[in-house]
């Protein structure tokens, strides 16, 4: 494929979205914009699901949601396909590449050969772009990598058909041809994205979601030490840190990304009030980082008393309050396009 340009981003799905939309002529698209318009910021303490017998927490919206919503808000149609047959999945992909279309693919990480083994868990919602084929090698642009890479036909088939929760089933997707995106559409998309995200974080009636979810996790942390013992409870904290700081978050549980989005939004909407709110999210990101350092003290075995677990929980309560304040402020702006 001629003139394919690799773009590295913090988060894989943002990266695929930015890259494919820029190719459709949306030169202004950046990772923070894609993340914000797609209302990517989230918090959920997932019920019924355990990871390594510990908590399953996500700091961003459902896999696939960012691409879907960003395109929808910008009024761009998308093509999406899943397959039951491996052959069909490959045939469809090959035909798209032949036509010169780079394609987004959902893949599992466990068999993703260019990742070091230490990072290969059974996580099935990673995203990459396939942009060409040379002999038996597919040309791969993985947004979290600095450089492009390749996968053989067999390797790519394996990751596209990884099994287990969130199995990709060969899922591929790309935006259809986009027309001119007017300033008005962009402004509307940004405002809709902000409103959607405010609703997700504040107004879903569940104690495990949004700001309430952060407090829910905090209340669990207070019980872990007596319930599971120091070692196990420490491992659970390590798990929270891993989810918050895993490759692709850009750090601070995606909060810095959202702060960067509001900063760009303030320029596009010419609304200085957003700068102040952006700073509140930067503060939240910093607090998530501090919280990770404090939790690390516990899982390194340096501080392990109940008081230290309570301290972790206290910090999370504070973060919840800061984020709530920021979203209330966003709501009060009553943004209009």
């Amino acid at each position: 494929m001629k003139d394919f340009k690799h773009i590295q981003t913090a988060h894989c799905e943002n990266g695929v979205t930015v890259n494919l939309l820029q190719r459709q002529g949306l030169d202004f698209m950046t990772e923070p914009l894609a993340f914000g318009i797609g209302s990517g910021l989230f918090y959920i303490h997932i019920p019924f699901l355990k990871v390594n017998k510990g908590p399953a927490i996500s700091f961003r919206s459902m896999p696939g949601a960012i691409f879907k919503r960003t395109c929808k808000m910008l009024e761009i149609d998308v093509t999406k396909k899943k397959f039951s047959s491996h052959e069909e999945a490959q045939k469809f992909l090959d035909a798209e590449i032949q036509k010169g279309h780079p394609v987004g693919c959902q893949v599992g990480v466990f068999h993703l050969m260019y990742f070091p083994k230490a990072y290969r868990f059974h996580f099935n919602a990673h995203n990459l772009i396939v942009y060409g084929k040379e002999g038996d090698n597919y040309l791969i642009s993985d947004p979290i990598m600095e450089e492009t890479t390749t996968l053989t036909t067999a390797e790519l088939d394996k990751v596209r058909f990884a099994k287990g929760p969130l199995a990709p089933k060969g899922h591929l997707y790309y935006p259809n041809e986009a027309g001119e995106i007017s300033d008005e559409i962009l402004r509307k998309a940004i405002i809709k994205g902000i409103k959607h995200n405010t609703r997700d974080m504040m107004h879903i009636p569940s104690r495990r979601l949004g700001g309430k979810g952060i407090n829910y996790t905090a209340s669990q942390i207070r019980k872990w030490r007596s319930k599971h013992g120091e070692r196990q409870a420490g491992l659970f904290l390590g798990q929270i840190v891993r989810m918050q700081e895993e490759i692709g978050t850009g750090g601070g549980g995606f909060r810095f990304l959202y702060a960067a989005f509001l900063e760009q939004a303030s320029e596009i909407l010419q609304d200085d009030r957003l700068i102040g709110i952006s700073e509140q999210f930067t503060k939240a990101g910093d607090m998530w980082r501090d919280s990770a350092v404090q939790m690390a003290g516990i899982y390194k075995g340096r501080i392990t008393s109940q008081k230290d677990f309570d301290h972790s929980a206290d910090i999370m309560n504070e973060i919840s309050a800061v984020e709530k304040q920021a979203f209330v402020a966003l709501e009060k702006l009553k943004l209009r396009p």
């Binding site: 491992l235 798990q239 840190v241 700081e245 895993e246 690390a296």
Partner: peptide, 11 residues
């Protein structure tokens, strides 16, 4: 970042 490297090593 050391903080998350240790979490991964522990896991």
């Amino acid at each position: 970042w050391e903080t998350k490297q240790i979490a991964l090593d522990n896991a």
